[in-house]
Design a protein around this nucleic acid. Structure first.
Lengths: 113, 113
DNA sequence: TTGACATATTCCCATATAGGAATGTATTGT
DNA sequence: ACAATACATTCCTATATGGGAATATGTCAA
């Protein structure tokens, strides 16, 4: 079997750097495709294709206004990713504590703040 | 150009569901490959290959003990992902506030708690 | 050294891109 | 209706898988 489709979920969709750039840009406010093309200096078809992927997994919402299509980031869809990564927070905090403890042992100092 | 390599960064590496399972499992404590195989019911070569990818991007650390290789999650490497997703936190909070406000408008109730 | 155990790597293949080029579609102005 | 504008989709191709099977490598025990 090949790799999972980028359209399968948010994890795969944000694995692409350009798509993260688009999400960052659209988080500030909704924008028509043309502005994304100009701002991020990407080819228009490329932007449309990335937006299609993002829309399919629910990471962006689209609204038509005349000839333009306005897109905006649906931050809510990024939460599962944040939550998953967050489950490791206690582990990296523990690691930092251990690093700090070792540093204090080495220095021989007993800080009391 | 094809899709970016899974070894290019943590984002690509965790896009694979089985690799997230492995990271979850190894976060609790270090484990030899054989236990991962048994616990997650995956083929041994498959586990070794996923571990290789995870190690290449720094998401796990390995330690040899006799014939066994013990792996453990390097939570620190997951922080960039958590941080990136976290930049959207204020946006989804805003959305929740708006949803709440609309709900209150509709109900016509003025809660004072 | 030989055999067994624990992992890692290689080979093969079906599949899914991502980018570039070209083309199709929707909407507006005249 | 027709041209122009703004996007979306299709076609093509090089590339990168991820799983299964087979094999190679590393380590320990006798």
């Amino acid at each position: 079997m090949a790799r999972a489709a980028t359209t399968s979920d948010a994890f795969n969709a944000v694995a692409e750097p350009r798509r993260r750039e688009i999400l960052n840009y659209l988080a500030l406010q909704e924008r028509p495709v043309g502005e994304i093309v100009d701002a991020l200096e990407m080819e228009q078809p490329s932007v449309s294709k990335h937006l299609r992927v993002l829309k399919d997994v629910g990471l962006v919402h689209a609204r038509r206004d005349g000839r333009q299509m306005f897109y905006r980031t649906n931050a809510e869809a990024i939460r599962p990713l944040h939550d998953w990564a967050g489950t490791f927070e206690r582990y990296w905090k523990h690691q930092l504590i251990r690093v700090k403890e070792r540093a204090e042992e080495k220095s021989g100092a007993v800080k009391k703040d």
